[in-house]
Design a protein around this nucleic acid. Structure first.
Length: 275
DNA sequence: ATATTCCCCTGGAAGC
DNA sequence: TGCTTCCAGGGGAATA
């Protein structure tokens, strides 16, 4: 479900409400994730800790604790992290529940269990963690500049759509924003990345920034179940130009939007606007 | 190196 | 109504 704009929106909503609060109880109700959760270990690490910062790297949420530990949460396809009064009924698939002081619970809800939740001892361990170490620059940081993109695209033969989805190239771009960025740049998703002209790479770079910033302003895309930690949906679905619009007229030229499959994922594009 | 394909899961929508 | 099939925002591994 969540790509960079959604995870960043969740981070911001958490930052407003969980900082400096203490974890009073750890309830692991389901341990069977792709990487199983060690329930006693998790409780031992988190109990009585205060949350001191809410950060993000790529699609990973990083909740820093008062003893240098960092709780890492990845929401996979269907995950959410919701803050609710403990009196509110527990929804299905609330697999980890952290009771905070003040009578609220931080609930990790993930029907498909593709997500991850684990704790690392400190920032150093975080920066060396194999899951994070190979991730490319944040697209909205100065590290993701045109020179970098040119260098990475050079001689790459894979389709530019797959290139954008490669987390070692750039962090946080998933299927929706890859499709939308290519439409905004007017680039065909099957174009080999290394064959894009300097001008087209410049347009792609600008399109990625514009699309992600717009999605952040709209607080993310809610297709079905995405919510921030206050339970609010995003509004960016109204701004999607091609994603999910197979067969519907292109908003620029009326030609039907096409869907193809690349690396097992749907790609939506306008065959007329994206050559 | 790179490109598919499959897999991990559940649930909703669409088709019959 | 009920059954089956397909599809889904991620990511990693296995396979050609």
């Amino acid at each position: 479900m969540p790509e960079l704009p959604e995870v960043e929106t969740i981070r911001r909503s958490l930052e407003r409400r969980v900082l400096l609060r203490t974890i009073q109880r750890v309830d692991v109700r389901e341990t069977r994730f792709r990487v199983p959760i060690d329930a006693p270990g998790l409780a031992r690490k988190l109990l009585r800790r205060r949350i001191t910062a809410a950060a993000r790297r790529s699609k990973y949420l990083l909740l820093h604790l008062d003893d240098e530990q960092v709780m890492v949460v990845h929401l996979g396809m269907s995950g959410s992290l919701v803050l609710s009064p403990e009196s509110a009924p527990l929804p299905r698939h609330a697999h980890v529940v952290l009771r905070l002081d003040g009578g609220e619970e931080l609930r990790f809800i993930d029907p498909r269990r593709f997500g991850m939740l684990f704790v690392v001892p400190d920032r150093d361990a975080l920066s060396r963690d194999p899951r994070l170490v190979a991730i490319g620059p944040e697209p909205l940081s100065a590290d993701f500049d045109l020179a970098y993109l040119r260098r990475r695209a050079c001689r790459v033969r894979k389709p530019v759509k797959n290139f954008l989805l490669d987390s070692t190239v750039v962090a946080g771009i998933g299927n929706i924003y890859a499709c939308e960025s290519l439409f905004a740049a007017g680039i065909h998703p099957r174009t080999p990345a290394g064959r894009l002209s300097g001008e087209r790479l410049r347009r792609l770079h600008g399109a990625v920034l514009t699309v992600l910033r717009g999605a952040l302003r709209s607080r993310g895309t809610t297709l079905q179940d995405y919510r921030d930690s206050d339970g609010r949906p995003g509004a960016n679905q109204r701004r999607l130009r091609v994603y999910g619009r197979e067969g519907e007229p292109c908003l620029a030229c009326r030609h039907p939007v096409r869907r193809v499959v690349q690396a097992g994922r749907s790609t939506f594009y306008c065959p007329r606007c994206q050559q």
